[in-house]
Computed example of a mutant assay.
Amino acid sequence: MQIYKIEYLFEGEPRTHQFEIKQARLSAHEAAMHLLQLHFGDGENSLIMPTADATPDEILNQAELVGLAQIMVVDQPSVDGSRNNQ
């Protein structure tokens, strides 16, 4: 498991969250999917979630529509296990 630190805006307010995920790398659109699930995954309206075949741009656009913006993976492990800031 890898720990990733994400910085983002939620409804205009700065937030930080850490995810522990079984992935070697985490892109902004993948982080957006995790944030959508975090903030809206338990909601009754499943229309908030992008479709399974959504492109990275569609995922980021959907996130922005519901108040998630400026999503950045600011710390993620490198291949050798040390930390990289991005």
Rank of each mutant, 00 (worst) to 15 (best):
G67R: 02
S78H: 06
T16E: 15
D75P: 13
I21Y: 06
P56W: 03
R15S: 03
I6P: 01
Q18E: 15
L26S: 15
T51S: 10
Q2L: 14
M72C: 08
F19L: 11
T55V: 01
S78T: 13
I59K: 04
G81L: 03
F40S: 01
N61E: 15
S82G: 02
E20F: 09
D53E: 03
V74S: 07
F10N: 02
I3M: 11
P50T: 01
L60S: 10
S27T: 15
L68I: 13
F10G: 01
A24K: 13
V66R: 00
R25C: 06
D53H: 13
A54E: 03
P14V: 07
E64S: 06
G81Y: 03
Q37C: 09
Q2N: 14
I48F: 05
I6E: 06
I59W: 09
G67I: 00
D57K: 10
M33E: 14
S46I: 13
G41W: 00
A54H: 06
S27Q: 07
Q2S: 12
K5L: 14
A32V: 06
V66T: 04
G81R: 02
D80K: 10
K5I: 11
D57G: 05
L35V: 15
L9V: 00
L68S: 03
E30D: 15
L26R: 05
H39N: 03
G81W: 02
I48E: 02
V74D: 08
L60G: 09
G81V: 09
D80A: 11
A32G: 05
E44P: 00
R15Q: 12
E11T: 04
T51W: 03
I6F: 05
Q62G: 08
S82C: 02
L47Y: 10
R15P: 01
P50H: 08
Q37M: 09
H34S: 06
